Amino acid sequence: MAFADASLRIALAAVFLFAAVSKVHRARARRDFAATIHSLGPVPERAVPPVAASVVGAEFVTALLLLDPRLGVHGPAAAVLALTAFTAVVVRSVRRGDRTACSCFGRTREPMGRAHVYRNSILLAMAAGALGLAAHGRHAFDAEAIAPAIPLGVFWAFLLASFTEFFSLIRPRPATRSVDRG
């Protein structure tokens, strides 16, 4: 169980850390994320900067909470709450038919869609699993669990952060008409 707990916490922490850093590492990334928040509404223009800063701050704090198993359920609970909110925003955007580009992990041209809902659902299931383990007293990482959990957790984080790109490779594309130039 310690391996599962460590793997889930490391993967989730890496995802939250990558998401936060990707939104603030450059001025353009900060502007893109603010534009995403504004286009998703109903956030007034003047409230966009503090909302953006709050989201990024929550992602950083959640990552830190997840990495300290002595804090028990606090890290996984923060992850469940954040992912529930993020998923609700994505579902709302998809249902409204918005073409808002997702700035979850930096700039992308891909609008929010089913792949984002699927990815967030996987992350939410992982957070719920970590919360279940934490609620049952699994609060310590031992050396035998953490050593293999680090690469596995980082690998899962990479896959999940890149999920929408992988999904776009297998998703059917609309047929394009060819033009006969003969």
Rank of each mutant, 00 (worst) to 15 (best):
S7W: 15
H38Y: 15
V21E: 10
G72V: 02
A27P: 08
R109W: 06
A19I: 02
A35L: 11
E45Q: 10
D98I: 01
P148D: 02
V179F: 14
N120S: 14
I150K: 05
M126F: 15
G153C: 02
T108S: 15
A143G: 10
A14W: 04
G106E: 06
V80H: 06
A147M: 05
D180A: 15
A82F: 13
A147F: 09
A47Q: 05
V24E: 11
S54N: 02
F163V: 10
L17G: 05
L124V: 07
A29M: 07
A34C: 12
T87N: 12
W156T: 11
A175H: 12
G182R: 15
V89T: 08
L40H: 06
H116R: 04
R70G: 05
V91I: 11
H116D: 13
Y118G: 03
A78M: 05
G75H: 00
H25E: 15
I146S: 04
A85C: 07
A147D: 03
E110R: 15
H74N: 01
F163N: 12
C104K: 00
L40C: 08
A58D: 05
D98M: 02
P49T: 03
A11L: 04
G57P: 07
A53C: 01
L160N: 12
K23V: 08
L67C: 07
A53G: 06
L83G: 01
A29K: 04
L81I: 09
A143K: 09
A143N: 07
R92N: 09
F33V: 02
F16P: 00
E110Q: 15
L124W: 13
A175S: 14
A115L: 08
R177F: 10
T100N: 13
R31T: 13
R9E: 01
